[in-house]
């Protein structure tokens, strides 16, 4: 089994270079050192789960890749070349699409307008609504996404439908890597299944997917590789196959003993308060 702390591990699905790699990335907010020397590799056709406790720095890491924050130290490599990402557009132009934890949809606009927001199709300088509607419908169909109508305001969709629209929106620019920050956090069982289905379809299209999740069940269902962040540092990268949940939980909580022994102890002794 891999050593959870060293983080040395070659992903099972990898053949060749990672499409996106982080080398020694650090980010600081005033007194908070949110990220320290973080390493990460994503390959095409791979679902990389990024897990960690609240405040571990997952969202910060995502926002650094997406160009919302600029990194203080370290390097981001895209297809083997070092790149600098200062604005969201830089990240988009490389081919990285991000679906944020706080949904970035305009409730007053309809599905088509949201899908194409910021990169509308035009003819003679005016919006080409017909072409956008047609492409929107085609995209939603290939992803087997079902929504009442592409012409109703996003506000009237359910949570799962909105999440699916947000993910579909990230695919409009034909990205190579899609980052999903807690896509199932607020969803029920059926809606979660919809989103996880969609994640699998993204992998089938040979995209690299970074999936941030709190939910180990979700992670187990779709991830190929799990990277653990703890207090802003790497705390192990594991292949999903052949790694036990306990190993991952131990890496998340930073337990020196592992969760297996904790559970064994719990079965006999009194249950400690505030367990993760």
């Amino acid at each position: 089994m891999t050593d959870p702390v060293s983080g040395s591990y070659a992903p099972a699905l990898a053949d060749g270079e990672p499409v996106l790699a982080l080398r020694g990335v650090s980010k600081r907010f005033g007194a908070v050192q949110a990220l320290t020397d973080v390493e990460l590799e994503v390959h095409t056709g791979e679902v990389l789960a990024l897990v960690g406790d609240n405040g571990a720095g997952k969202s910060t890491l995502v926002k650094s890749i997406a160009g919302v924050h600029t990194i203080d130290d370290g390097q981001i490599e895209w297809e083997g070349r070092p790149v600098s990402i200062h604005r969201p557009q830089d990240s988009q132009h490389l081919g990285i699409a991000t679906v944020y934890q706080d949904l970035a949809l305009a409730d007053n606009l309809d599905v088509v307008a949201n899908l194409f927001l910021g990169r509308e199709l035009t003819t003679h300088g005016t919006l080409d609504e017909v072409a956008m509607e047609k492409r929107a419908q085609e995209l939603l169909d290939t992803l087997s996404i079902r929504i009442p109508s592409v012409r109703i305001p996003v506000a009237s969709l359910s949570g799962g439908q909105r999440q699916v629209v947000a993910i579909a929106r990230s695919l409009i620019g034909d990205p190579k890597v899609v980052i999903l920050d807690e896509p199932t956090a607020a969803l029920g069982v059926e809606q979660t299944a919809q989103v996880l289905d969609l994640v699998e379809r993204l992998r089938a299209r040979d995209l690299g997917v970074i999936l941030i999740s709190h939910n180990m069940v979700d992670v187990a269902a779709v991830a190929d590789t799990v990277a653990v962040l703890r207090l802003g540092r790497n705390n192990g990268t594991f292949p999903m196959r052949g790694t036990t949940q306990e190993t991952i939980i131990a890496a998340i909580t930073g337990a020196t003993d592992n969760a297996v022994t904790r559970r064994a102890a719990r079965a006999t002794g009194p249950r400690p308060e505030g367990e993760a």
Binding site: V68, P88, A104, L105, A106, N108, L117, G118, R119
Partner: peptide
Amino acid sequence: GNIEASRRAG
């Protein structure tokens, strides 16, 4: 409709 969404859309 949503300032943050607009910003992120570039």
